[in-house]
Nucleic acid binder design. Structure first.
Length: 170
DNA sequence: TAAGTGCGTCGTT
DNA sequence: AACGACGCACTTA
C-alpha cells in the first residue's frame, strides 16, 4: 500500500561522474535531490511506473543542469522547483540562495540580512541544512564568517563544489 | 596573531 | 525546552 505522499512523487536517478544522484519530482516540479548513496544504503521506494511526459522533460533538464553544476558552471535553465514542503521561513531562505551567483559566496549573516531578518543568522544555517535540493539550490555558497561552516551532505561536497566554482583555493 | 570560550538570537522540533 | 551548517566580543598564550 502506498502512502499519500508516495503517490505523486517520482524518484529518478541522475548518473554523473560523481555517482548516482536521485531526483524527486512532484506534480509541481523538482522537490528533492539526493547525493549519491553509499553502497550499503540502497534507494527505497523507486516507482516502477513511467513518469508523465512533463516530468521526463524536467528530468532531462535536471540531468543537464546537474552535470554543469558539478563542473562548476551555472546551469542555464532549471525546471520548476517545488519548495512546498518547507516552512515559510525556509522557503524564503531557499529562494534567496538562488541569487548567489556561481563563483560567489555569501555569509550566513548576509543571507539573514537579505531576507530582512538580520538576527536570524543561526536559523538561516538551519534552513540551509534543510535545503531539499542541494547543488542546484546552492546552499554550498553560504559560508561562515570564520571559514567554511558546515554542510549536511558532507563537508567534502561543499569544498569540492566551491573549488570547482573558483571560490576556494585548493 | 591564533585559538578557545561564552552568550545572544531565532526558527524548528 | 533544547538544539543548531552562526557571529561577535572577549580572553588567553
Amino acid at each position: 500500500m502506498k502512502t499519500d505522499c508516495e503517490l505523486e512523487i517520482y524518484l529518478l536517478s541522475v548518473r554523473t561522474a560523481e555517482g548516482e544522484f536521485m531526483a524527486r519530482y512532484s506534480t509541481k516540479g523538482l522537490c528533492g535531490l539526493e547525493f549519491p548513496r553509499g553502497a550499503g544504503r540502497p534507494v527505497r521506494g523507486v516507482s516502477t511506473a513511467k513518469p508523465p511526459l512533463e516530468i521526463r522533460r524536467w528530468h532531462s533538464i535536471v540531468t543537464e543542469a546537474l552535470t554543469l553544476a558539478l563542473a562548476g558552471k551555472e546551469p542555464t535553465i532549471l525546471p520548476p522547483l517545488d519548495f512546498s514542503a518547507g516552512t515559510a521561513f525556509q522557503q524564503r531562505v531557499w529562494r534567496t540562495l538562488r541569487r548567489i551567483a556561481c563563483g560567489q559566496t555569501w555569509s550566513y549573516a548576509r543571507v539573514a540580512d537579505s531576507i530582512g531578518n538580520s538576527k536570524a543568522v543561526r536559523a538561516v544555517g538551519g534552513a540551509c541544512g534543510a535545503n531539499p535540493i542541494p547543488v542546484l539550490v546552492p546552499c554550498h555558497r553560504v559560508v561562515a564568517s570564520t571559514g567554511l561552516g558546515g554542510f549536511s551532505g558532507g563537508l567534502h561536497w561543499k569544498r569540492t563544489l566551491l573549488e570547482r566554482e573558483g571560490s576556494l583555493k585548493i
